[in-house]
Design a protein around this nucleic acid. Structure first.
Length: 230
DNA sequence: GCATTAACCACAG
DNA sequence: CTGTGGTTAATGC
């Protein structure tokens, strides 16, 4: 992990939607509470079970949010895009991280001390509002994922996940698969073997194209139908 | 019963 | 790390 100079949040090119409503003075305070780091693919931003003292603002890059369950297996809960905060859930009650976050690509992130972050929420209603807005949207999307995980079978869940990457993460019909089969399986809720097989079926039926790690959605209508019907 | 789905296991690139 | 094949258990007509 690479430490960088003290950040100037006022002039940040990647300011979050929430930080955009902060005053000059508040941004200065944010800057004081903030350290910018640059990390490599695979590096952890924070780990489940370790104390949390910061909120992480993901400035550039992608992250995976994952959590170990009772059988000590890691499940990927979601992919976080740049411009979002990681670990806000932990700032109120718990002082121990309930899940892990790690970089899926090279990434730049700002570690913001929890104390100051909370102070900004208390002081600035617009800031708080933006955050709540974000948290609400996230929760709704988690509800959706949870329900589909319960009701769809593997093929549908995989189709949905491939679409999730295309639509939410990359906003493109073609994108690099950054996850290993194992990780993709842990996100879809299946085994590496089942995911491999289902993926092959998608390719064989011409729904997606795959060369190397590149995925291309060839028949959006069909894959949507699969994702919807399960 | 018979078919489908998906996990588990083993083995090979 | 991946893909494949065989086996097995559960679930649904």
């Amino acid at each position: 992990m690479d430490l960088r100079s003290e950040s100037s949040c006022a002039r940040c090119r990647f300011k979050s939607k929430a930080a955009a409503v902060l005053s000059e003075e508040e941004l200065h305070m944010l800057g004081k509470a903030c350290v910018e780091v640059s990390v490599n693919r695979g590096d952890a931003f924070f780990r489940q079970g370790t104390p949390s003292g910061h909120v992480v603002y993901l400035k550039e890059g992608l992250a995976r949010i994952h959590k170990k369950g009772p059988r000590n297996r890691d499940q990927i809960l979601k992919i976080a895009c740049s411009g979002t905060y990681l670990g806000i859930q932990t700032i109120l009650g718990d002082v121990v991280n309930q899940y892990s976050a790690s970089a899926l690509t090279r990434a730049v992130a700002c570690y913001i001390r929890v104390g100051e972050f909370r102070l900004l929420i208390q002081k600035n209603g617009d800031f708080a509002n933006e955050l709540i807005d974000y948290i609400c949207r996230e929760e709704l999307s988690h509800f959706n994922r949870l329900v589909s995980h319960w009701q769809k079978q593997l093929t549908g869940r995989l189709a949905e996940t491939l679409l999730y990457f295309a639509e939410e993460i990359f906003r493109a019909q073609e994108y690099p698969m950054l996850l290993t089969r194992q990780e993709l399986a842990s996100m879809v809720g299946g085994t590496r073997e089942s995911v491999s097989r289902a993926m092959k079926e998608f390719v064989d039926s011409g729904i997606i194209g795959m060369n190397k790690k590149e995925i291309r959605i060839l028949k959006p209508e069909l894959i949507k139908k699969l994702a919807d019907s399960g």
